[in-house]
C-alpha cells in the first residue's frame, strides 16, 4: 500500500523537508543572535576615567602617568592586539617640534586578555630626567617668557592612548572583506592635547 500523501507527495517526504527547513531556521536564528550580541558588545565596550598624571619627585625627576580602565560588559572576552600609550610636548615654535617624553607598547604576542563581563585597569608611567627634562624645562621657560605660566606639573603634555583587540575567536582570515573583522574588533582611542 502506498504511504499517506499530502497534495500528491509522500507525507514522510514532507516531514523530512520540514525538518530540513527547521534545521536551517535554527541555524539562522542562532547566527542572528550571535551577530546581534557581537554587534552590541562591540558598541558597549569602552574606557572609563582616563587620568593624566604629572608629578615632580623629590630628586627632581618628572613623573608622567596615565590611568584608565577598560570596561567589558559583554559576554565575550577581548584578545588584545595592542595597547599603545605615549606622551609628548608639542613645541610649535622650536626644534624639535615634538618632544616625545615616554611611551609604552604591548603587542599581541603578550597574550593580554580582558575577561568577559570584567574590567581591566591599565596604568602607564614614565620618568623624565637628564637631557629630556632639560628640554622640557627649556620649553616651559620659553613659553613663560611669551606669556604662558607653565610649570613641570601644568605643562601641556599631550597624551595618546589606543587599545585594540578582537572579540573572542571571531577573528578570521578572509582578506577581502574588511567589514567582517570590523564587526568583531575593538578600537578605543583617547587623545588629549594632540591639536585635534
Amino acid at each position: 500500500m502506498p504511504g499517506k500523501k499530502w497534495f500528491g507527495a509522500s507525507r514522510t517526504v514532507i516531514v523530512m523537508a520540514l525538518a530540513y527547513s527547521l534545521l536551517f531556521l535554527a541555524f539562522s536564528i542562532a547566527s542572528a543572535v550571535t551577530y546581534s550580541t557581537v554587534t552590541i558588545a562591540g558598541q558597549s565596550i569602552t574606557y572609563e576615567n582616563p587620568e593624566r598624571i604629572a608629578q615632580v619627585l623629590g630628586n627632581g625627576t618628572l613623573f608622567l602617568g596615565f590611568n584608565t580602565s577598560i570596561v567589558n560588559p559583554s559576554p565575550y572576552s577581548i584578545h588584545v592586539t595592542s595597547i599603545n600609550w605615549y606622551t609628548e610636548l608639542i613645541n610649535a615654535t622650536g626644534s624639535p617640534t615634538l618632544i616625545v617624553l615616554t611611551s609604552s607598547y604591548t603587542a599581541e604576542n603578550v597574550g593580554v586578555l580582558v575577561p568577559a563581563g570584567a574590567d581591566m585597569n591599565l596604568s602607564f608611567k614614565g620618568y623624565i630626567s637628564g637631557t629630556l627634562l632639560a628640554r622640557v624645562n627649556g620649553f616651559i621657560n620659553y613659553s613663560n617668557e611669551h606669556g604662558a605660566s607653565y610649570t613641570l606639573t601644568t605643562a601641556p603634555y599631550a597624551h595618546s592612548f589606543e587599545f585594540r583587540g578582537w572579540l573572542d575567536d571571531f577573528k578570521h582570515d578572509y582578506l577581502r572583506e574588511a567589514y567582517l573583522n570590523g564587526l568583531v574588533s575593538i578600537d578605543l582611542v583617547y587623545t588629549y592635547g594632540m591639536g585635534e
Binding site: L18, S21, F24, F27, S28, S31, L180
Partner: peptide, 22 residues
C-alpha cells in the same frame, strides 16, 4: 515556505561567516 529557510541561512552565512554557525 519550507525551502526558503536554507536560502536565508546560506545568504546570511555568506555575508557574515565569522559569526555564523555552522
Amino acid at each position: 515556505l519550507i525551502c526558503a529557510t536554507p536560502v536565508a541561512y546560506l545568504t546570511f552565512e555568506f555575508m557574515l561567516p565569522n559569526v555564523s554557525f555552522p
